[in-house]
Amino acid sequence: MTTKDIFEIKSREHFQDLALEVFQFQFEKSPVYRTFCDHLHKSPQNVTHLDHIPYLPIEFFKRHEIINSEAKVQTVFESSGTTGKQTSKHYVSDLSIYEQSFLKGFELNYGNIEDYCLLALLPSYLEREHSSLIYMVKELIEKSKHPMSGFYLEKGDELKKTLNSLQEKRSKILLIGVSYALLDFVEKGSFPLSNTIVMETGGMKGRRKEMVREELHHYLKEGFGQKNIHSEYGMTELLSQAYSKGKGIFNCPPWMKVVVRDPEDPLTLLKTGQNGGVNIIDLANINSCAFIATQDLGKLYPDGSFEILGRFDHSDIRGCNLLAL
């Protein structure tokens, strides 16, 4: 198995076969994941189906270095967190795998990045050099090759001028930003856009009160004159992203899959249509952990798409906490 195999998955059967190979590889090469699996009495000998693979609670990334023991660390991505809060760290051994993943994932959903001018309402790379999201957007900005592509957080006036210029030229625009920054921008005056994808990456980051998705998207649709607001779903601990083109329904690239677990029993997976904890398989995360139990709540649909409904509060993560002990 090579990384090339991961990015050329053609069927469910192919995905399952590769997932089982990745499970065996990580069982053998990742000491933290091996210890976790041993506690659950799971091994390549008795894990013969996708549904049997154990999912590592995402909290482990706050306390352990989760990486292939034979790999060297090339960079460390770190979650933003809040003051005094322990952050997650993702030890990455090969940035080229991440670059393949986010570029191929973008192309599958939106086509060639060179067709767009990418405007980011996000902190710059110099401010957040350990953010996986900022690293991705920085690379996409560079690959767009458009002279006006760039980071525009705290540059509202400059962004307006840029948008006006691009509108006059009828250029294709991708405006991507954290929720609070997009809201701040439209609150200073509606700015109807054509030939534009407006994409939120979530996160009020303590700047504003949290909103449900419908309320957030309502304000953004009105402010930007859009029929739909797109969304990006990713996290520090992953090397792949899912995208929504409207209504908060996300689709994964072929090497990524979401399943939903029982909130009371984290080892039990639920059927489609039921609400539960979101588990993610990210085969691009081959040198870390490809099987992660997140703290998000979600619903899975029969076609493999999914919706994020919120997060577990501290009283509701009993299952993950038990596994993390």
Rank of each mutant, 00 (worst) to 15 (best):
E107D: 10
E28I: 02
F106C: 00
C37N: 09
R128P: 00
E59S: 06
I58Y: 02
D115V: 05
I66Y: 06
P31V: 13
S69Q: 15
K62F: 07
F61G: 04
S124Y: 08
D17T: 15
K72S: 15
L50M: 12
L20Q: 01
Q86E: 09
F25E: 13
K72P: 02
H90E: 07
G105R: 03
L40E: 05
H49Q: 15
Y116E: 05
K85P: 01
F60S: 01
P123G: 09
I113V: 14
V47T: 14
F23Q: 01
V47Q: 10
H64C: 04
S79C: 04
G105Q: 01
S43F: 15
E59Y: 05
E78M: 08
C37F: 04
I58F: 07
S30T: 07
L18Y: 06
S96Y: 06
S79H: 02
E114L: 00
S101R: 12
K29W: 02
I53Q: 08
A71P: 00
D115Q: 14
E114T: 12
D115N: 12
Q74H: 08
S124E: 13
N109S: 14
K104Q: 14
E107H: 13
K85E: 15
F25K: 09
G81N: 09
S30E: 07
S101W: 06
L122S: 04
Q45G: 04
S80R: 06
P54D: 02
